[in-house]
Each structure stands twice: as structure tokens, then as C-alpha cells.
Simulated scan of single mutants.
Amino acid sequence: MKHRRWFPALFLCAAIGAVSASTLPHVSSGRLVRHNDVPAHGVPERTIDVWLPSTYDGKRQHDVLIMHDGDMLFDARLTWNNQEWQVDEVAGQLIDAGHVRPFIVVAVPNAGAARHAEYFPQQPFMSLTVDTQQALYDVQRDENVPLFAQPVYSDAYATYLVKDVLPYIEQHYAVNTAPSSRILAGSSMGGLISWYTLTRYPDSFGGAICMSTHWPGAMQPQHPAFDAFYTYLQAHLPTLKDKRLYFDYGDETIDAWYPPLQQRIDNLLQANDIPATQWTSRYFAGANHSEQAWAARLDVPLRWMFASAEASATR
């Protein structure tokens, strides 16, 4: 028997993708460049948008922020729910004011119907019992529309970011190539794939921004997937001691599920002596699970992750 679930629209934010993948989003700060020829091995092909701040002149090297759900970042007119992260406005203001080191944003669109399969951490998924895995595959996010359009393949997605996207970006743009200069970022399922990719390729990235991380993994407040995430993360903490981890969460709509789970993750980091300077966990009372909520606090993780030398000296 199929396990049918009817999910709030807020959880589906970013799952459907942009209204028109052929229309270049409008940005009010910096400029956006679209690339249709980025290699894609093992994952569905897609266009990649690169946001360049006003400081980018092709000579000065910039850091790199890779953001998942890239079709939801810049232009609310083109998104399924008429919301956006306001990345160009927020990042542009911070960079122009000298509050953060200059960085470019690599906006990687999700895989549409396959988003859940692409973002669900694969090794924790494989550690679940066969029955639990099948129960997840049986869940429907809409009538006759499965939550997982295909088997989980997030390992291939993480490899795609490292083996295809990063080399392409470094070939076409003046960017810092040190791992510490490359950061991953996403929300909800994008939060999961951000920290997971960091554990799969700790030598390729310096940190992960995980906003409203969907710790249940499933469409209910408690699920065995969380214990699988917890166990996997615990085993991989030694590889993260020199990385930077940002977590945050609200307490409205689906974010109401996250406080007790995020607290367990925070306790895990503390118990394993992850340096306090290397991670932070922020609670935003009254914040819900939406692009508007993430846009309203996006400056917080960007300031924390990309703090300029001048900004750090004044703290």
C-alpha cells in the first residue's frame, strides 16, 4: 500500500523550480551570467547561473559560494511561489560595505521532481532498513506524484559539484581555489545536502551554511532518518574539525519540527570538541519555512562565514 501524504506548500518551496528556466532572473545588484555548457556526469543536466558582485573585475580573486535550489535565489517573478532569497541584494550590500570578503555565487538549480532524491544524504539513507527505505520511496508529495522521483543519488550530486561545477567555475572566473574559500549553502533539504557534501569532500570545501535544515528527512517531525543522519555525522566529525558549520532554524510552520533535533546536533558538536569558533547554531523565534524568512536573515550566515579582516578586527 502506498503511504500517501499531503504536504504544506511551504515545504515544497524550491521543489518545483522556476516558472521559466529559459528566462534569466533580474538582479538589482551586480550581474548574472548564465552557463548552458557546464558538464554534468551522473546527474540531470541543467543551466548554472553565476552572480558577480560589483567588485568583480576578472582580476581580483573572489571566494565561491555554491548555493543549491539556485532557481529560487534572485527573482521572485520567476519562482513557483513568488518568493526569493534576495541573494543579490543582501550579498551585494555586505560586499560593497566591506563587511565580508568578496565572493561570487554559483546558483545550481535543483532537479525538479528529483530534488528529494538528489538532496537526501545517500549513505545515511542506505543505512536505513530496507523496509524504511521502501516506505520513504512509497511516500507521495501529491496525488500520483512520488516524493522520490528516483532512487537517492546525492553521492553523484556531490561528485558533480566537485568534479564538474568547481573546475568549470575555476576555468571561467577569477576565484580563490583554496578549499577554505569555497562554501556550500542551502535550506531545508538544501541544508542536508550542504553538510553532507562537506563530509563527502572535506578537502574541497571550507564550510557549509545550513538554514532550516530538514533534520527529519521525511514528512513528519520524527523519523528514523534523523538517527541515521546523527550517526553518520558523528562518525565523520573528525574530518570537520577545521571546517566551518552554520546552522539555524525558526519555530513556525515546518521549522517547528527542528528545535529539538537541532539541539541534539548542537550537543553532538559540543561533546566532540568541535572548536566553538568553527560552528554556530542560531534560533530565530517566529521564523517560518520560506524563502522570505531565509532572505530576512541571510546576512547572518554570510557575515559569519565570509567575515572580512576589517570586520573581524572590530568585533
Rank of each mutant, 00 (worst) to 15 (best):
Y157C: 13
I95C: 02
A97F: 00
P109L: 00
V130S: 07
H99F: 02
T132M: 04
Q150F: 00
V100H: 00
Y173T: 08
I95V: 15
D164S: 09
A135T: 04
A156R: 13
A91T: 05
V175Y: 14
A113Q: 10
R115T: 12
Y137E: 08
M126A: 09
Y153S: 11
R115K: 13
A114F: 13
I104G: 03
A114V: 02
N144H: 12
S127I: 00
Y153K: 11
G92N: 05
V152Q: 10
E118Q: 15
F148A: 15
Q150L: 10
R101M: 03
D142H: 14
F148R: 06
V165K: 11
V165E: 08
P109V: 02
A174G: 06
L136D: 04
Q86I: 01
D96H: 14
N176R: 14
A114L: 14
Q150V: 13
K163P: 06
A158L: 09
S127E: 12
H99L: 15
N110L: 02
V106W: 04
Y168G: 07
D96M: 08
H172L: 07
Q123E: 10
E118D: 12
P109C: 07
A149G: 14
V90P: 01
V105Q: 00
Q86R: 13
I104P: 04
Q93G: 05
F120Y: 14
M126V: 02
T132N: 08
Y173L: 07
N110A: 11
H99G: 00
Q123N: 09
L128K: 06
T129M: 04
V175D: 01
D164W: 03
G112A: 02
A97I: 01
V100T: 12
Y157H: 14
P179S: 14
V87S: 12
V165M: 13
Q171T: 14
D142M: 08
V162C: 08
Q86L: 07
F120S: 13
P121E: 03
T132W: 01
I169P: 06
P124M: 02
I104R: 14
S127N: 06
D155A: 04
A117V: 02
E170D: 09
V145A: 11
D131W: 04
L147W: 09
G92R: 15
P146S: 02
V130P: 02
M126C: 09
P121C: 00
